[in-house]
């Protein structure tokens, strides 16, 4: 079970003499149950790449395979693919439109041809997973705060019971508390329901804490594909492409340079850094 991209490229305006690539010759595979994060500065090709994964965008070159099948071949149901691979885009305001939250979340299941009862059951389940209080199901989605809107929007995708959930900057514009809440819910989804999560994010701290695998994009290409620990070891390379590592990584490296910590120390979270520092001090 996987989504695979085989040598995909996307060219703006293919008629132009000098080709401008949004994505250039990318191959990768994401398996069910993974927690992958895609990082890269604005314009590095992240949003183009995720749109290949559920067939919203057709690559100019290369193939997109879902469970081994080419999704752009004749006879392949793109609607079926979009049910299995859900994308929640950055701005929840771009999808909320119904008069009540419950109805809005039912929109996806109903598009899949489910009956009203079935759609409602799925919608209720999804809202519950996203911790939206039941008392607000009949409220208008436009009355909600930013963080709640985001949760309802994600529920709207979850209600279709996807195997893969792609989240484009789910925490942008939220305050720290709202940010933590959403990321915790997503982590729970990943381990309790086995839904693969593909998280596009700017926040290195979040990525370090939640993802198991990171894809680094630059200029339309994937330049690194590894565990967070390995990726953040190369924090100097990340800086050359406008990214950075979590702040604690810098602390650990600075301490290693002064000979305070051993050279191979590699920490990504505050908890880890504290442990390493205490180990040295208690010697």
């Amino acid at each position: 079970m996987s989504i695979a991209l085989e040598h995909v490229s996307y060219i703006y305006d293919p008629d132009q003499k000098v080709k401008k690539y949004a994505v250039r010759d990318v191959s990768l595979e994401i398996k069910k149950g993974e927690f992958v994060s895609i990082i890269g500065h604005t314009g590095s090709g992240k949003s183009t790449l995720i749109q290949f994964m559920n067939g919203l965008l057709k690559p100019t070159e290369g193939r997109v395979l879902f469970e081994g099948q080419d999704v752009f071949e004749k006879g392949f149901s793109l609607k079926g693919l979009r049910q299995k691979v859900g994308i929640s885009f950055q701005y929840p305001d771009n999808q909320l439109f119904e008069s009540t939250i419950l109805k809005d979340v039912m929109f996806g299941p109903k598009n899949l041809g489910q009956s009203r009862e079935e759609a409602e059951t799925n919608a209720r389940a999804a809202l519950k997973v996203m911790a939206v209080p039941e008392a607000s199901y009949d409220k208008s989605p436009f009355e909600l705060s930013g963080g709640q809107k985001r949760r309802v929007a994600i529920a709207g995708i979850l209600a279709m019971n996807p195997d893969y959930l792609i989240l484009d900057e789910p925490t942008a514009g939220l305050d720290p508390e709202g940010r933590d809440e959403i990321l915790e819910l997503i982590r729970t989804l990943n381990w309790s329901q086995g839904i693969a999560v593909i998280l596009v994010s700017h926040s290195m701290e979040d990525v370090a804490e939640y993802a198991k695998r990171i894809l680094v994009m630059n200029d339309g290409q994937i330049i690194m594909d590894d565990t967070p620990r390995e990726i953040f070891k190369a924090y100097r390379d990340l800086e050359t492409i406008g990214l950075s590592a979590p702040q604690v990584t810098y602390i650990a490296h600075a301490l290693a340079e002064k000979g305070f910590l051993p050279y191979d120390t590699n920490v990504m979270t505050v908890e880890e850094a504290k442990k390493e520092i205490l180990k040295v001090l208690k010697k």
Partner: peptide, 16 residues
């Protein structure tokens, strides 16, 4: 551009 984004968001929810 916004229309384009909205349509994609709804297509991701199975809209036709």
């Amino acid at each position: 551009e916004e229309v384009n984004k909205i349509m994609k968001a709804q297509m991701a929810r199975g809209a036709d």
